[in-house]
Amino acid sequence: MSRLAVRLSVTAQSYGLEHVAETKGPYIFVSNHPSELDEALVRDALRHLSPRLVTVAVEPRRGIRGLVDQALSLRSASRLAVLLASGTSVLLFAEKTRTDDGSLAQLDLGAALLGIRTGAPLVPVSIVGSYRALPPWRTTVEPGRPRVQVLFGRPIRAGVGDEPSAVTDELAAAISTGLAEESRGWYGARRSQADGAHAPETAAGGEAGWRKIWKATATPTSPSRRRVWQ
């Protein structure tokens, strides 16, 4: 989906770009991938900060885009390292598989390995609300310009000697905290992370699939309309 189409169809808000702007690029953005809007959303948020950006998903893309990825060898770590060295940032949808309920699946170690190999800062990105806006069974975006948030976390520096699994855990924790913000608020998400409570949005097992889908597509209850009298 093009950036213009996304801008017209959803109300996108991005937070945390100031953390990215203070770190020298190029960057490796590591994001969850709940819907087909995600790439355009992140590209739109980064249009000033990092206009040169290539996107790679762990699960190969289908159709013509998959062929283009193949032709450009975008799925090879060496090729991505060369791109990073030339100043191009990389957006990685690093989940091992795409879930059909909007929750976060286990992350692949590839993002951490790339960060360790190149020294580029790893930026966790949480996309919230895009599953509700465009669930897999819809071909067009939900009407009414639903609200979608792109939350950028503080960049994580990984270097030689760092354990890829530890870096991946740190990335997953940062993305989960971002996802938990929708239900628990900014402070609540960080507070529950400190208690070691898993955010329900990220729990791999436990809840039945239909309950996750039900939750992920529920209309947000917080008042979004501005009140005249306050």
Binding site: E18, A21, W186, Y187, R190, R191, A194, D195
Partner: peptide, 25 residues
């Protein structure tokens, strides 16, 4: 356009408060 400096500082403070388990803020 960017977040206010007060916000930037208070975010750091609150992140530490959350990590320490402070609820009454």
């Amino acid at each position: 356009t960017a977040p206010d400096v007060r916000q930037r500082v208070i975010e750091h403070v609150l992140e530490r408060a959350a990590a320490a388990g402070v609820d009454d803020v």
